[in-house]
């Protein structure tokens, strides 16, 4: 079953997935959706595997038209979703008829919106992932008038009862407004910051415009100071590493980070808070909160449970509408 999306308007929109786990052993970064919760939820809402390719749009609007009936879902940053001018909810499966125009406009909170399409889209892969890698020049930014092939082989579960919040899917969208709270556990080289490491937790920091998928820079009145000066031999750095490079800012490495580096790691942002950092805007205030690994781990498990529960409710909703086909069984991708 073939089909395609005609893109009318796109800027800073890419097709991505959960990341290139085969990359780091070959020196390529992980990359992939910066807000993994929202990306996974979008795919679950349309019955896809969590790791299926989907569209990540950063800050700007997107408009497209499918040439066959297809179920979509938009999650992540807050936008206005309209299908042929009719407003529809985010965080819900939304049926779109062939020829209808889908528009996502006016991002009002957050930085990245995820748009999943039932059956996913057809794009090139590198080492098992379609995630863009800006350093090696892999990946493809969507542009106006291009066509994106649909990958699905089964018809979408289309029903007028979808998209009207008939089913309480019970998803809890992340809070994107105001001061972001980011949890950090101690890093392996915290002692190299002498007595200044605690400055991370004392006052809010502000997200610098020089932030991207590789790393976020944050300024504050009191930045921790590296007290050691020795040259470190390159070693693997975790996603979420909090470093203090020369200058007056913190650097927090995100999924596009180079896999090896020589700076000491003060702390590591927890997996769930990395999603929060995937949505913060330049100028937004961030408060860091010190947690231990046990707390971080129970947060990840709660996050996992919420996604598994969503999958179950979506499956139930689809089967109550008579769609048992076209729903990918519980796959975490």
């Amino acid at each position: 079953m073939t089909g395609r999306l005609t893109i009318h308007e796109a800027s800073l929109a890419m097709v991505t997935d959960l990341g290139r786990t085969r990359g780091p052993q070959f020196g390529l970064p992980l990359n992939g959706a910066l807000d993994q919760y929202s990306a996974r939820a979008a795919n679950i809402l349309v019955g896809n595997a969590e790791g299926d390719p989907l569209i990540e749009l950063t800050l700007f609007d997107l408009a497209f038209t499918p040439d066959r009936d297809v179920l979509i879902a938009a999650t992540g940053a807050e936008m206005t979703l309209e299908v042929d001018g009719a407003p529809l909810p985010q965080w819900e499966p939304v049926p779109v008829r062939a020829g209808q125009r889908v528009e996502l406009r006016g991002m009002s909170a957050g930085m990245r919106c995820y748009v999943a399409v039932h059956g996913s889209v057809e794009v090139p892969h590198l080492l098992g992932s379609c995630a863009p890698d800006t350093v090696v020049g892999f990946g493809h930014a969507l542009s106006a008038d291009e066509h994106l092939e649909l990958a699905g082989t089964t018809p979408s579960p289309m029903s007028p009862y979808l998209g009207i919040s008939l089913f309480n899917l019970g998803i809890c969208p992340p809070c994107l407004d105001g001061t972001a709270v980011v949890d950090v556990v101690d890093g392996p080289e915290i002692e190299e910051f002498g007595g200044t490491a605690h400055r991370l937790f004392r006052r809010p920091f502000e997200v610098s415009p020089r932030s991207n998928h590789i790393g976020l820079r944050l300024g504050g009145p009191e930045v921790p100071v590296r007290t050691s000066t020795e040259e470190k031999i390159s070693r693997g750095v975790p996603v979420g590493a909090v470093e203090v490079p020369p200058g007056d800012e913190l650097l927090i490495l995100h999924r596009g980070r180079g896999v090896t580096a020589g700076y000491p790691v003060l702390g590591v942002v927890t997996s769930t808070s990395l999603d929060t950092l995937g949505q913060v805007r330049p100028g937004q205030s961030v408060v860091f909160r010190h947690v231990d690994a046990t707390q971080a781990r129970s947060d990840v498990r709660a996050w996992r449970k919420a996604l598994d529960a969503l999958r179950n409710r979506v499956t139930t909703a689809f089967s109550s509408l008579g769609f048992d086909d076209g729903v990918t069984p519980n796959q975490r991708g």
């Binding site: 556990v185 392996p188 750095v237 975790p238 790691v265 997996s271 690994a293 971080a296 990840v300």
Partner: peptide, 8 residues
């Protein structure tokens, strides 16, 4: 340990 998801 290097965060809740990594070990060095």
């Amino acid at each position: 340990t290097a965060g809740e998801s990594a070990v060095r």
